[in-house]
Protein backbone atom coordinates (compact mmCIF):
# COMPACT_ATOMS: atom_id res chain seq x y z
CA UNK A 1 0.00 0.00 0.00
CA UNK A 2 2.81 2.32 0.85
CA UNK A 3 4.93 0.96 -1.97
CA UNK A 4 4.95 4.34 -3.67
CA UNK A 5 7.11 5.61 -0.81
CA UNK A 6 10.02 3.38 -1.78
CA UNK A 7 9.43 2.34 -5.38
CA UNK A 8 10.12 4.85 -8.17
CA UNK A 9 7.75 3.38 -10.77
CA UNK A 10 4.86 3.13 -8.30
CA UNK A 11 5.62 6.65 -7.19
CA UNK A 12 5.55 7.81 -10.80
CA UNK A 13 2.19 6.16 -11.41
CA UNK A 14 0.62 7.67 -8.32
CA UNK A 15 2.15 11.07 -9.01
CA UNK A 16 0.68 11.11 -12.52
CA UNK A 17 -2.77 10.45 -11.08
CA UNK A 18 -2.72 12.93 -8.22
CA UNK A 19 -0.66 15.78 -9.61
CA UNK A 20 -3.46 17.66 -11.43
CA UNK A 21 -6.06 17.39 -8.64
CA UNK A 22 -3.35 18.30 -6.16
CA UNK A 23 -2.48 21.48 -8.02
CA UNK A 24 -6.19 22.37 -8.13
CA UNK A 25 -6.74 21.73 -4.41
CA UNK A 26 -3.55 23.54 -3.49
CA UNK A 27 -4.47 26.66 -5.39
CA UNK A 28 -7.90 26.72 -3.72
CA UNK A 29 -6.41 26.29 -0.25
CA UNK A 30 -3.70 28.84 -0.94
CA UNK A 31 -6.21 31.45 -2.12
CA UNK A 32 -8.40 30.67 0.87
CA UNK A 33 -5.44 31.02 3.20
CA UNK A 34 -4.38 34.33 1.68
CA UNK A 35 -7.94 35.60 2.02
CA UNK A 36 -8.06 34.52 5.67
CA UNK A 37 -4.75 36.26 6.25
CA UNK A 38 -6.17 39.40 4.62
CA UNK A 39 -9.21 39.49 6.90
CA UNK A 40 -7.40 38.35 10.03
CA UNK A 41 -7.29 40.90 12.89
CA UNK A 42 -4.29 43.10 13.49
CA UNK A 43 -2.21 42.63 16.58
CA UNK A 44 -2.74 45.44 19.09
CA UNK A 45 1.02 45.60 19.67
CA UNK A 46 2.60 44.64 16.37
CA UNK A 47 0.07 46.07 13.94
CA UNK A 48 0.24 44.96 10.33
CA UNK A 49 3.64 43.31 10.66
CA UNK A 50 2.08 40.39 12.51
CA UNK A 51 0.97 39.07 9.13
CA UNK A 52 4.57 38.14 8.34
CA UNK A 53 3.97 35.35 10.83
CA UNK A 54 1.71 33.56 8.33
CA UNK A 55 4.72 33.06 6.07
CA UNK A 56 7.36 32.79 8.73
CA UNK A 57 5.89 30.02 10.87
CA UNK A 58 4.84 27.63 8.06
CA UNK A 59 8.22 27.92 6.36
CA UNK A 60 10.06 27.25 9.62
CA UNK A 61 7.88 24.25 10.21
CA UNK A 62 8.43 22.96 6.69
CA UNK A 63 12.19 23.47 6.92
CA UNK A 64 12.25 21.13 9.91
CA UNK A 65 9.84 18.68 8.28
CA UNK A 66 11.99 18.49 5.15
CA UNK A 67 15.06 17.69 7.21
CA UNK A 68 13.28 14.93 9.08
CA UNK A 69 12.03 13.45 5.81
CA UNK A 70 15.59 13.46 4.53
CA UNK A 71 16.81 11.81 7.73
CA UNK A 72 14.14 9.13 7.43
CA UNK A 73 15.05 8.37 3.83
CA UNK A 74 18.78 8.40 4.60
CA UNK A 75 18.27 5.68 7.18
CA UNK A 76 16.07 3.81 4.73
CA UNK A 77 18.56 3.90 1.87
CA UNK A 78 21.68 3.22 3.92
CA UNK A 79 20.27 0.47 6.11
CA UNK A 80 17.89 -1.23 3.69
CA UNK A 81 19.64 -0.32 0.42
CA UNK A 82 16.62 1.36 -1.11
CA UNK A 83 17.96 3.68 -3.82
CA UNK A 84 14.74 5.73 -3.90
CA UNK A 85 15.96 7.47 -0.76
CA UNK A 86 18.89 8.95 -2.68
CA UNK A 87 16.47 10.40 -5.23
CA UNK A 88 14.37 11.94 -2.47
CA UNK A 89 17.44 13.41 -0.76
CA UNK A 90 18.66 15.07 -3.89
CA UNK A 91 15.24 16.35 -4.91
CA UNK A 92 14.15 17.63 -1.52
CA UNK A 93 17.31 19.33 -0.20
CA UNK A 94 16.95 22.56 -2.25
CA UNK A 95 13.30 22.80 -1.20
CA UNK A 96 14.29 22.61 2.45
CA UNK A 97 17.03 25.17 1.87
CA UNK A 98 14.52 27.52 0.22
CA UNK A 99 12.07 27.24 3.10
CA UNK A 100 14.84 27.83 5.62
CA UNK A 101 15.96 30.89 3.71
CA UNK A 102 12.37 32.11 3.49
CA UNK A 103 12.04 31.64 7.24
CA UNK A 104 15.25 33.58 7.88
CA UNK A 105 14.40 36.44 5.53
CA UNK A 106 10.82 36.82 6.77
CA UNK A 107 12.05 36.65 10.35
CA UNK A 108 14.56 39.34 9.61
CA UNK A 109 11.88 41.53 7.97
CA UNK A 110 9.67 40.94 10.98
CA UNK A 111 12.48 41.75 13.35
CA UNK A 112 13.33 45.14 11.88
CA UNK A 113 10.10 46.91 12.98
CA UNK A 114 9.80 44.84 16.16
CA UNK A 115 13.29 44.90 17.64
CA UNK A 116 14.86 47.63 15.55
CA UNK A 117 17.51 45.42 13.95
CA UNK A 118 17.56 42.97 11.06
CA UNK A 119 19.39 40.39 13.06
CA UNK A 120 19.45 39.42 16.72
CA UNK A 121 21.71 36.74 18.09
CA UNK A 122 18.71 34.91 19.40
CA UNK A 123 18.90 31.18 20.00
CA UNK A 124 16.15 30.28 17.57
CA UNK A 125 17.41 32.53 14.80
CA UNK A 126 20.95 31.27 15.19
CA UNK A 127 20.01 27.62 15.07
CA UNK A 128 17.85 28.17 12.00
CA UNK A 129 20.79 29.94 10.37
CA UNK A 130 23.00 26.96 11.17
CA UNK A 131 20.39 24.65 9.70
CA UNK A 132 20.47 26.74 6.55
CA UNK A 133 24.24 26.25 6.42
CA UNK A 134 23.76 22.49 6.76
CA UNK A 135 21.33 22.55 3.84
CA UNK A 136 23.83 24.57 1.81
CA UNK A 137 26.57 22.02 2.57
CA UNK A 138 24.26 19.21 1.46
CA UNK A 139 23.69 21.02 -1.84
CA UNK A 140 27.45 21.60 -2.17
CA UNK A 141 28.07 17.91 -1.59
CA UNK A 142 25.69 17.01 -4.39
CA UNK A 143 27.76 19.18 -6.74
CA UNK A 144 31.18 18.00 -5.60
CA UNK A 145 31.58 14.32 -6.24
CA UNK A 146 31.82 12.97 -9.76
CA UNK A 147 30.88 9.40 -8.97
CA UNK A 148 27.14 9.11 -8.45
CA UNK A 149 27.21 6.29 -5.91
CA UNK A 150 29.83 8.05 -3.82
CA UNK A 151 27.91 11.29 -3.96
CA UNK A 152 24.62 9.80 -2.87
CA UNK A 153 26.04 7.77 -0.01
CA UNK A 154 28.12 10.69 1.22
CA UNK A 155 25.06 12.92 1.29
CA UNK A 156 23.05 10.31 3.17
CA UNK A 157 25.78 9.81 5.77
CA UNK A 158 26.19 13.56 6.14
CA UNK A 159 22.45 14.03 6.65
CA UNK A 160 22.50 11.39 9.39
CA UNK A 161 25.47 12.99 11.15
CA UNK A 162 23.71 16.33 10.85
CA UNK A 163 20.48 14.99 12.26
CA UNK A 164 22.30 13.71 15.33
CA UNK A 165 24.08 17.02 15.66
CA UNK A 166 21.17 19.38 15.12
CA UNK A 167 19.65 18.79 18.58
CA UNK A 168 23.06 19.20 20.21
CA UNK A 169 23.65 22.43 18.33
CA UNK A 170 20.15 23.65 19.19
CA UNK A 171 20.64 22.86 22.85
CA UNK A 172 24.08 24.43 23.04
CA UNK A 173 22.90 27.55 21.23
CA UNK A 174 20.02 27.84 23.69
CA UNK A 175 22.44 27.60 26.56
CA UNK A 176 24.84 30.08 24.95
CA UNK A 177 21.97 32.49 24.46
CA UNK A 178 20.91 32.45 28.09
CA UNK A 179 24.53 33.01 28.97
CA UNK A 180 25.04 36.11 26.88
CA UNK A 181 21.70 37.89 26.57
CA UNK A 182 19.21 37.04 29.23
CA UNK A 183 17.23 40.21 28.48
CA UNK A 184 15.86 39.63 25.00
CA UNK A 185 14.42 36.22 25.73
CA UNK A 186 11.14 37.26 27.31
CA UNK A 187 10.28 39.33 24.28
CA UNK A 188 10.78 36.38 21.93
CA UNK A 189 9.10 33.62 23.89
CA UNK A 190 6.05 32.39 22.05
CA UNK A 191 2.90 33.95 23.51
CA UNK A 192 -0.40 32.10 23.50
CA UNK A 193 -2.06 32.67 20.17
CA UNK A 194 -5.62 33.79 19.59
CA UNK A 195 -8.02 31.52 17.70
CA UNK A 196 -8.70 34.20 15.10
CA UNK A 197 -5.00 34.09 14.24
CA UNK A 198 -4.69 30.32 14.57
CA UNK A 199 -7.18 29.59 11.79
CA UNK A 200 -5.32 31.37 8.96
CA UNK A 201 -2.04 30.01 10.34
CA UNK A 202 -3.24 26.41 10.05
CA UNK A 203 -4.66 26.98 6.58
CA UNK A 204 -1.46 28.64 5.45
CA UNK A 205 0.62 25.79 6.89
CA UNK A 206 -1.43 23.26 4.94
CA UNK A 207 -1.11 25.38 1.80
CA UNK A 208 2.66 25.69 2.20
CA UNK A 209 3.02 21.94 2.78
CA UNK A 210 1.03 21.24 -0.37
CA UNK A 211 3.09 23.68 -2.43
CA UNK A 212 6.24 22.02 -1.11
CA UNK A 213 4.76 18.62 -1.95
CA UNK A 214 3.99 19.63 -5.53
CA UNK A 215 7.51 20.98 -6.09
CA UNK A 216 8.93 17.83 -4.49
CA UNK A 217 6.86 15.57 -6.76
CA UNK A 218 8.01 17.46 -9.85
CA UNK A 219 11.64 17.35 -8.76
CA UNK A 220 11.49 13.67 -7.87
CA UNK A 221 9.96 12.85 -11.26
CA UNK A 222 12.72 14.81 -13.00
CA UNK A 223 15.34 13.04 -10.90
CA UNK A 224 13.94 9.61 -11.80
CA UNK A 225 14.15 10.49 -15.49
CA UNK A 226 17.75 11.71 -15.09
CA UNK A 227 18.72 8.50 -13.33
CA UNK A 228 17.12 6.38 -16.03
CA UNK A 229 19.07 8.13 -18.76
CA UNK A 230 22.46 7.60 -17.13
Amino acid sequence: MFGFLINPSKFNKLADIILRPLVFITSIILIMGLFLVYVSPLDYQQGLTVKIMYIHVPSAWLALLTYSIMTFYSILCLAFKIPFGFIINKAVAPIGATFTLLCLVSGSLWGKPMWGTWWVWDARLTSVAIMFLIYVIIIFLSQTFENREVREKTIAIFILIGSINLPIIKFSVDWWNTLHQPASISKLSSPSIDVSMLQPLIVMTIAFSLVGLIIAILRIKAEIIIRKNH
Binding site: I169, S172, W176
Partner: peptide, 23 residues
Protein backbone atom coordinates in the same frame (compact mmCIF):
# COMPACT_ATOMS: atom_id res chain seq x y z
CA UNK B 1 36.36 10.80 -1.73
CA UNK B 2 36.76 14.33 -2.89
CA UNK B 3 39.70 15.32 -4.97
CA UNK B 4 38.72 18.85 -5.89
CA UNK B 5 37.07 20.73 -3.03
CA UNK B 6 39.30 20.60 0.01
CA UNK B 7 37.63 23.38 1.95
CA UNK B 8 34.55 21.20 2.35
CA UNK B 9 36.25 19.12 5.05
CA UNK B 10 37.11 22.25 6.98
CA UNK B 11 33.51 23.45 6.75
CA UNK B 12 32.29 20.20 8.28
CA UNK B 13 34.68 20.52 11.22
CA UNK B 14 33.71 24.14 11.86
CA UNK B 15 30.00 23.40 11.60
CA UNK B 16 29.95 20.56 14.09
CA UNK B 17 32.33 22.22 16.52
CA UNK B 18 29.77 24.92 17.39
CA UNK B 19 28.63 23.14 20.61
CA UNK B 20 32.24 22.55 21.57
CA UNK B 21 33.12 26.24 21.24
CA UNK B 22 30.00 27.33 23.09
CA UNK B 23 30.58 25.10 26.07
Amino acid sequence: LNKTNFSLGGIVVLLFSIPLIIF
